[in-house]
Amino acid sequence: MTAAAVSELRKAYGSFEALRGVTFEIHAGEVFGLLGPNGAGKTTTVEILAGYRRRDSGTASVLGEDPERAGSAWRERIGVVLQSSATYANLTVAESLRLFAGYYAKPRPVDEVVELVGLQDKRRARVRTLSGGQKRRLDLGLALVGDPELLFLDEPTTGFDPAARRAAWETIRSLRALGKTILLTTHYLDEAEQLCDRVAVLREGRLEAIGAPAELAGAEPATEIRYRREGERLLVRTEDPTRELHELTGRALAEGWRLEELEVRRPSLEEVYLSLTETERE
């Protein structure tokens, strides 16, 4: 089942073409990642899908409706966390969530949301007293309080410390387990690898690659074997790592030399991503 689909999406701001014909589909129940450097068109894509921006051309369908024309009933079913949006500083966490819950026909209980985003200790704290990370968690809570089917998260962990990122990942995993469809943008490759069922790599408004993170990384056929021999760094790329390793270790044992710092690895998503997005940069 398709939760959202765009086809040949184009958008320009003046002479700057933010999107130059982007096509992809998001399946219901998956975590879909939009990857790409700054200015690649990630936020523009999210804002078009969430109904904030009008596209110049192409088609877009989100939960069966055109986001440009969708109304309140459609907004009941989506949740949006943008990169920078404050909320009322003078309300408490619980008050903010209750306020937003009141906008929806079937909200999720406020206590449940508080727990889901880990703000139990801050229920009665005014928003102005929260730390940056706590505010981001409240942002997520406000997007979840309507119990949406589809969640848009624009760079949900930017600026988080490592522990806070892990916690946010756990929350996103638990949302996925609840059957939510999630579109997230990120420029952290490990985040995409950890969380996303599929990722799309954008560069300069074009889709460069799409697929499961392992699939994208696997598109590079060779396995790399690295080692040092008498101070010299050696790298072997092979399609048949079992045989290659067997021969290498056999020779080393027979001839009595050491394979210093031996390493066998597949290219990571990061390397694929860098090769996709940075090859033509100056």
């Binding site: 969430a50 109904g51 904030y52 309140s72 009933a73 907004r75 009941e76 989506i78 949740g79 949006v80 943008l82 920078s84 949006s85 404050a86 909320t87 009322y88 937003f100 906008y103 929806y104 026909a105 406000l142 997007a143 309507g146």
Partner: peptide
Amino acid sequence: EEGILKRLRATPLP
């Protein structure tokens, strides 16, 4: 300017 109005636009509040 703080983005509160923008956030409201994503909710069903007409």
